[in-house]
């Protein structure tokens, strides 16, 4: 018999598939974007591929938290909330809306508003993950196992890495726009390369975070 816990668990695994697995294409594609040997037409084709595939990590990034919470419900957490627990989905639908807007409206004033709202969502979530879950754990407001707290902390770190990626990569889009308009110059190529070099440590840290998240979820260590 397939129960709801099984569905959440398989969804949780698939979220990791389309986050960590899909990121290979995004990362590898970005290394080809800064290859001077590649023509602008080629690089435009690569950016189309990256932009499409990157939707998957973006959506996975949003879904992993509410799906993880639903899994915790199946383990007996938050039972006092009853069906109100489904309200956890509301902010994530909003967040999805903000992310979609920030991508599809990129470069416009409306797009900037969406980016701001997306940033606010992330900050709230990071605060909840670190401060909220710590309060719940250390003041024993609800019983939280060590591994669950650890997963919250790692997820928070992954979200911070997401910020790191956004800020360290912020110079890429304008430089790429200049590449399309003016053609390749040493200065533009250097800017593109510098952006990708700056983003790499954040991406690697994010991957390590995701890999650790999955290990903690599987091994459920206690301290």
């Amino acid at each position: 018999m397939i129960d709801s816990q099984l569905i959440w668990l398989i969804l949780h695994v698939f979220i990791l598939v389309y986050w960590l697995g899909a990121d290979i294409t995004v990362f590898y594609g970005s290394t080809q974007l800064i290859n001077k040997k590649n023509s602008i037409e080629t690089r435009l084709a690569i950016i189309k591929i990256i932009s499409f595939v990157n939707w998957f990590p973006n959506i996975a990034n949003i879904l992993i938290f509410p799906v993880g919470v639903m899994l915790l419900v199946g383990l007996g957490y938050f039972s006092e909330l009853g069906n109100f627990i489904f309200l956890v989905w509301v902010p994530f639908f909003l967040w999805f809306f903000f992310i979609t807007g920030s991508i599809t409206q990129r470069g416009t004033l409306v797009g900037k508003v969406y980016v701001f709202l997306d940033t606010v969502m992330r900050v709230i979530l990071i605060l909840f993950v670190f401060v909220g879950s710590s309060l719940l754990y250390f003041f024993e407001i609800i019983f939280i196992q060590d591994w669950v707290l650890l997963k919250f902390y790692i997820y928070g770190t992954v979200l911070i890495c997401g910020f790191g990626i956004r800020f360290s990569f912020s110079g890429f889009a304008p430089a790429f726009q200049r590449l399309i308009e003016n053609g390749s110059t040493i200065e533009i190529e250097n800017k593109l390369r510098a952006s990708v070099s700056r983003v790499k440590p954040w991406v690697l840290a994010l991957w390590i975070g995701l890999v650790l998240l999955s290990y903690v979820g599987i091994s459920k260590p206690g301290f």
Binding site: L16, V17, Y18, G21, I24, T25, V53, S214, I218, S219
Partner: peptide
């Protein structure tokens, strides 16, 4: 056991997730 289960999951992750990029590109 948990290490092997974890590796098994990661193999699935990189198989199906990697295929997405291959398919689209």
């Amino acid at each position: 056991e948990s290490i092997i289960v974890w590796l098994h999951v990661l193999l699935f992750v990189y198989w199906l997730g990697g295929d997405l990029g291959v398919f689209y590109s």
